[in-house]
């Protein structure tokens, strides 16, 4: 294992009854890069995310984060290690304010317990202040500060996507898993989102991205992994993937060109 690899899966397999959603899948994400995971609908991309974040347990294989095995940890423990995520359809806390939503990211880093919360002990007050500052900072950076007291369900869809990103970033992750961050956004929102994601590696955040929009993927990625039927079918830089006949076939179906086996 190269030591600049921060997140890695080794032969993970996830079955649902008879269906093999993910089949001996390997991916190695290098630190401070944007790594994309693409593939047709139902290829198993979101399942890979759910296995990495501990929502599903894989039948086989290992998930390694900074060289440590994550298998068997609960989702909240995995977040505390430094892996945060967003969801394809925003799963916000709809009846809570945007500020409260963003503060959720800081929950795992808080220590205040039952009694210190009731008694408002000094260390609890300091911690609350810190949680709010962190959350407020990310709201500012994503342009959501004016919405801070609005309920999450009342803000526009594009802002909900950004809010979910703010919530994940407030967790101070080392690796951020983004599940179709530009899905459902208009062109200008898409541009804002792309600009923002592009800057994350410079701040020490490694990004693993699932995306359908090829402009986004080709524009942002350092490396692309292509999946189909739960398996890895290709991996390479955007140019390599763009010219790879196997990938073209997976997306468009078999044409008259010869089929090339990928390694």
């Amino acid at each position: 294992m190269r030591n600049d690899i921060v997140l890695e899966t080794q032969g993970i397999t996830k079955r649902f009854r008879g269906l093999v959603a993910v089949d001996r899948f390997d991916i190695a994400v290098r630190a401070f890069t944007i790594h994309s995971l693409i593939g047709p609908n139902g290829a198993g991309k979101t399942t890979v995310f759910n296995v990495i974040t501990g929502i599903y347990r894989p039948e086989e294989g290992k998930v390694l984060f900074q060289g440590q095995v994550l298998n068997g940890l609960k989702p909240h423990e995995i977040l505390a290690r430094g892996i945060a995520r967003t969801f394809q359809n925003p799963r916000l806390f709809k009846n809570m304010t945007c500020l409260e939503n963003t503060m959720a990211g800081q929950h795992a880093h808080g220590r205040a317990g039952f009694w210190s919360s009731i008694l408002r002990l000094p260390h609890q007050r300091r911690e609350e202040k810190k949680i709010q500052e962190q959350a407020g900072e990310w709201l500012h950076r994503l342009g959501l500060w004016p919405f801070r007291h609005e309920l999450a369900r009342n803000i526009p869809y594009g802002c909900q996507k950004l809010l979910e990103l703010a919530r994940a970033l407030a967790a101070q992750p080392k690796v951020l898993l983004l599940d179709e961050p530009t899905c459902g956004l208009n062109e200008s929102e898409k541009a804002t989102m792309m600009n923002f994601i592009e800057g994350l590696p410079k701040e020490g955040i490694t990004v693993l991205l699932v995306e359908h929009n090829m402009n986004v993927v080709m524009g942002l990625s350092d490396l692309i992994t292509v999946m189909n039927y739960g398996k890895k079918i290709a991996e390479g830089t955007p140019e390599e993937i763009y010219n790879n006949p196997v990938v073209v076939e997976a997306y468009l179906g078999r044409g008259e060109s010869n089929v090339v086996k990928s390694g």
């Binding site: 974040t53 929502i55 609960k74 989702p75 909240h76 977040l79 505390a80 945060a84 995520r85 969801f87 799963r91 916000l92 806390f93 709809k94 009846n95 809570m96 409260e100 959720a104 990211g105 929950h107 795992a108 880093h109 919530r167 994940a168 967790a171």
Partner: peptide, 16 residues
């Protein structure tokens, strides 16, 4: 409240 609103998201955001 996070748990009440969305249990999966709460768990993914680090809530035990």
């Amino acid at each position: 409240n996070y748990i009440r609103e969305d249990e999966i998201a709460a768990e993914a955001m680090g809530v035990d």
